[in-house]
């Protein structure tokens, strides 16, 4: 099973600088041209489900607007 993850972008902080879009190795990010943040920028959104949760978008984000999550298998107790 491939590792899957997702990000949550906080519109309050995102300035639409596109650094994360450039950096994303899976190319799953894009500016959301249908929405504006309170400061008047187009925020980033995920456009594909192939995010691996690597966290590179968060590492390059100047405004710490991105929270990165990853699915982690729960180990079953042995019987």
């Amino acid at each position: 099973m491939p590792v899957s993850g997702w990000i949550v972008v906080d519109d309050f902080y995102c300035k639409g600088c596109e650094l994360c879009i450039e950096a994303c190795p899976e190319d799953v990010l894009e500016l959301d041209m249908d929405r504006l943040t309170p400061k008047g920028y187009h925020p980033v959104k995920m456009i594909e489900e192939t995010c691996t949760g690597c966290g590179i978008c968060a590492i390059v984000c100047p405004d710490a607007a991105i929270t990165v999550y990853r699915e982690k298998p729960v180990k079953q107790a042995r019987r």
């Binding site: 099973m1 993850g5 906080d10 309050f12 902080y13 400061k39 949760g53 690597c54 966290g55 968060a58 590492i59 405004d63 710490a64 607007a65 991105i66 929270t67 990165v68 999550y69 990853r70 699915e71 982690k72 298998p73 729960v74 079953q76």
Partner: peptide
């Protein structure tokens, strides 16, 4: 396989909540 969400990265605590 059941999965759980793990936080890989979040805003540091030492940051204030301002733009």
């Amino acid at each position: 396989v059941s999965t759980t969400a793990e936080v890989v990265y979040q805003r540091p605590e030492s940051f204030t909540d301002v733009h």
